[in-house]
Write a protein that binds this DNA or RNA. Structure first.
Lengths: 145, 145
DNA sequence: ATTCTTGCAAACTGTTTGCAAGCTC
DNA sequence: GAGCTTGCAAACAGTTTGCAAGAAT
């Protein structure tokens, strides 16, 4: 977990929520706090629910899902689905552009950045004659032991 | 739709199914036929169901889902999920390695191949120190009009 | 004749929604 | 005090599964 990123995002989140007229209710505050810490790479919506319920911090999963959805609409989170169709979220931060690496052995997902790969994507888009608006890359593999 | 690919896949499908002791029931045959034609790029499971039901070719969606799942287990199809978590399938053919390009305007998905991009992926995996077992790339963009 | 396949309907699971009570500003 | 938030429970949708009737070999 990257503390600088966490704080930057928290600051932005607070600003965005205030601007949108959203109040600091219990569920919302807790979800934001969890995402700032654990949402720097993909977290399952279910995991967020469980983490908050274990702590007794949030009463219902509906609230968690609702807040995650809201934060996504505000551009604070990015939503995706895992292989099984379960919702996952991660912080949406312009300066933290990254892709995902899935370990075939453990199933664990981690983030990576690679400037050359980015350039290759841009070059490919040019060859295809499209104006690129986004892209996602998932690498699957194993770490040699 | 590429007829050569269709025929190659149909032949392989027939062989694999026979080897597995699967019989040529109505539902299975129809699903295979549809996938050979329309499954060269991602098709929604639901679309397959609808297409076959409109034709009166298959009585229940359960059969379609079952067959799609079977074909995936046999390595004949590859399964994924769209943005909304709906199941999608496409032909799994070694010689037809491709990625996907999503048109931001229409939402339509099409396949593309790009050798340089493939190399960039391999190079990135090497830099990351992983043994690559697979990868997926989704490009989003729009075609300049 | 035997075994696989199909269709039906019910079950399942994660996610979403309606509503009344509670809390924030 | 007004109106946003929350929690509960019920609804939802796509997908999966159990089972009895119907085919394929």
């Amino acid at each position: 977990m990257n503390p600088a990123l966490r704080d930057r995002w928290l600051a932005r989140a607070e600003r965005s929520m205030a601007e949108a007229g959203l109040r600091a209710g219990a569920a919302r505050s807790r979800v934001v706090a969890v995402m700032a810490e654990d949402g720097q790479c993909l977290v399952g919506a279910r995991d967020v629910v469980d983490r908050l319920r274990d702590r007794g911090a949030v009463g219902s999963q509906a609230s968690v899902y609702r807040v995650l959805d809201e934060l996504t609409s505000l551009g604070l989170l990015r939503r995706s689905l895992d292989d099984q169709g379960l919702a996952q979220y991660e912080i949406d931060d312009a300066a933290h552009h990254h892709h995902h690496l899935v370990d075939e052995d453990t199933g664990r997902v981690e983030a990576f950045e690679d400037a050359d790969l980015e350039e290759a994507v841009i070059a490919a888009a040019r060859r295809l004659g499209i104006e690129l608006t986004g892209h996602e890359i998932v690498l699957r593999g194993r770490r040699p032991s």
